[in-house]
């Protein structure tokens, strides 16, 4: 698992992907941050609440290559015939993408420190926000990783990931479109909303059910990922 993590992490920087991801993230988060400064606010949560839309677009790009390219280049033959479990393989890849995302997110600590020169920010809220973004991003990575494992094409993986992210973003709107007779379904769907749960974090609410929601999403999608790869051997 460690070997796969190391290779994936290094490969983000041996081709432009890692740099592009970090640059895009830093650019947009910096833009939102400069907006707070302009309005003389110390409320860093605005940065985080806008981050959702940015992540929605760039996380699928971060993960599109991870599984699909292995299959296309037949390098999965090396991984699958090595003494490594499939769980280890999936975890290695997941953690490598998460590490890059963590590097991106780390920049918000810098923003908080800058703000602390003007007024003392509410550190509990800042830590809660960073934590919320981290586990929400991790759940997004787990979903996009699964989509990447289902195809041989990076492009399809990226588009599939993007579509799924958009759906999760709009899931409450979709739920409200349902007729009254299907209200139970609408309720269930809106419970799956990534954005409304994320908004709770942004407004400083640290809800155990929200944390559990994202963590279980990570576990479920990584588990599916292992099964998808396992299934490929049997088909």
């Amino acid at each position: 698992m460690l070997a796969i993590f190391k290779r994936e992490f290094a490969s983000y920087f041996s081709n432009p992907m890692g740099y592009v991801f970090l640059a895009v993230f830093y650019f947009f988060s910096g833009m939102y941050f400069s907006m707070i400064l302009k309005y003389n606010s110390t409320d860093i949560t605005i940065v985080f609440s806008y981050l959702f839309e940015v992540l929605m677009f760039i996380i699928p790009l971060l993960c599109m290559r991870l599984m699909s390219e292995e299959k296309k280049q037949k390098t999965d033959q090396l991984l699958m015939t090595s003494p490594v479990s499939i769980t280890g393989l999936v975890m290695g890849k997941f953690l490598a993408a998460l590490a890059i995302y963590g590097m991106a997110l780390a920049v918000t600590v810098v923003y908080a420190v800058i703000l602390s020169f003007f007024a003392s920010p509410e550190w509990a809220v800042v830590v809660g926000n960073i934590f919320g973004s981290l586990i929400m991003g991790a759940a997004m990575i787990a979903i996009c990783l699964l989509i990447s494992a289902c195809t041989e094409s990076q492009i399809i993986a990226a588009i599939g990931g993007l579509a799924t992210m958009l759906f999760l973003w709009m899931i409450e709107n979709v739920a409200s479109l349902l007729p009254d007779s299907l209200a139970w379904l609408g309720n269930a769907l809106s419970q799956l909303s990534f954005s409304s749960r994320y908004d709770n974090f942004c407004s400083g609410i640290l809800n155990i059910s929200d944390i559990l929601f994202y963590i279980s999403a990570i576990v479920v999608f990584l588990f599916f990922n292992v099964r998808v790869i396992e299934k490929r051997r049997w088909s």
Partner: peptide, 30 residues
């Protein structure tokens, strides 16, 4: 699998790695 060294029909190479880096990765993997 620990007992096997396998060279598939198409060698499973990562094009963006150096030979040394690649073999180091395989070493860690095994």
């Amino acid at each position: 699998k620990q007992k096997i060294g396998y060279l598939p029909e198409l060698p499973p190479l990562y094009m963006d790695m150096t030979v040394q880096g690649y073999l180091g990765f395989v070493y860690d993997l095994k």
